[in-house]
């Protein structure tokens, strides 16, 4: 199957006064049509910037330094700003992390929804656009959508607002949705509902999903494949089953052990020693070296390359190869 999105050697740097921040540094991954891929990592590991890079929403002082982003047959780096605008919100949609901030506080929900349709379909009538939007609200589980269309964002709770942004993302039946921690700001009970609904809606419409999150527990349940990011690089990627059940990279192992669960009750929670290195002064070698239990002299000097393993997963580690 031909991937719907292929990211190759993407580098997005921020040129600040304090120095260059390599927020995304040489990452490659792909998403197949209808597939759900998890992009996992701690805050500041470059997940969100990856999402914005795909949509061409990197603002100064940030810049995509090199790499290819291929969407279907289009090279997103080469197309015009107008073409990119046509793709945004239409073929690739995005859901943001904080539902309290994503909707414009001074515009009615209907305005914010209808404009999304009209931006990509100039000929549609106001009534048709309205009906589509109202149905979309109903689809994400908002009751009495006709009334709600007239409301302002502040009249909604956080969970409801995130449903609205999900409805907006689904409006033009995109081929790919980038969901940037869509459930992080929500209550656990609402979280479950939103995840379930997104999964269902994507299945029904055959939409592929890039699920960006720091929460392994969430992605474990819904994704087909997982990419784990650390300090701007993907350090391990493979099928969800492999990553969760047999993590190879010490960082992935640490992440999985850190997830609190009930069978570890009474035990001390696992934590990965040390801190994420400052993005302003990344070490010459492996960025995880200082916190790694497998570290060797070589790790300090050499940047591990991405290597494919027999079971199909990709790893960036100098020591795993020796072990197995």
């Amino acid at each position: 199957m031909k991937p719907i999105l292929e990211v190759e050697n993407l580098k997005t740097y921020f040129f600040t006064k304090e120095g260059v921040v390599k927020a995304v540094d040489d990452i490659s991954f792909h998403i197949n049509p209808g597939e759900i891929v998890g992009l996992v990592g701690e805050s500041g590991s470059g997940k969100t910037i990856t999402g914005f890079s795909i949509l061409g929403l990197i603002d100064s002082p940030g810049k995509i330094v090199s790499g290819n982003i291929k969407f279907k047959d289009l090279d997103l780096q080469k197309i015009s700003a107008k073409q990119m605008q046509d793709i945004r919100g239409n073929r690739i949609a995005m859901i943001f992390q904080d539902p309290m901030m994503t909707l414009n506080p001074v515009l009615r929900i209907e305005t914010q929804m209808i404009e999304t349709i009209k931006a990509h379909n100039k000929t549609i009538s106001q009534q048709d656009a309205y009906n589509t939007c109202r149905d979309a609200l109903g689809l994400v589980g908002i009751s009495s959508p006709d009334e709600r269309m007239k409301a302002y964002p502040h009249q909604f709770s956080g969970g409801m607002r995130q449903r609205v942004s999900i409805a907006i993302a689904l409006l033009n039946k995109p081929d790919l949705i980038i969901a940037d921690e869509p459930t992080t700001a929500l209550d656990v009970t609402i979280q479950g509902q939103v995840i379930f609904e997104m999964q269902k809606l994507c299945k029904e419409s055959g939409t592929a999903l890039l699920w960006v999150t720091h929460d392994l527990a969430v992605v474990a349940g819904i994704t087909d494949r997982i990419s784990v990011m650390y300090a701007g690089r993907i350090i391990e990627q493979g099928t969800t089953d492999k990553i969760i059940n047999q993590p190879l990279h010490p960082y992935t192992q640490g992440l999985i052990k850190s997830v609190p669960s009930k069978n570890k009750k009474g035990e001390k929670l696992h934590q990965i020693d040390g801190m994420v290195p400052s993005m302003f002064s990344l070490p010459k070698g492996c960025a995880f070296e200082e916190r790694c239990y497998l570290r060797s002299e070589q790790c300090k000097q050499e940047q591990p390359l991405e290597t494919q393993y027999a079971d199909g997963r990709f790893l960036r580690c100098l020591n795993i190869g020796k072990q197995t």
């Binding site: 929403l57 945004r88 949609a93 901030m101 999304t116 931006a119």
Partner: peptide, 17 residues
């Protein structure tokens, strides 16, 4: 700098809108 401006752009709205 607000998220809702970025979200508006992510919806594919024109610059002028």
């Amino acid at each position: 700098l607000q998220d809702y401006i970025k979200f508006a752009r992510a919806k594919g709205l024109s610059h002028s809108r």
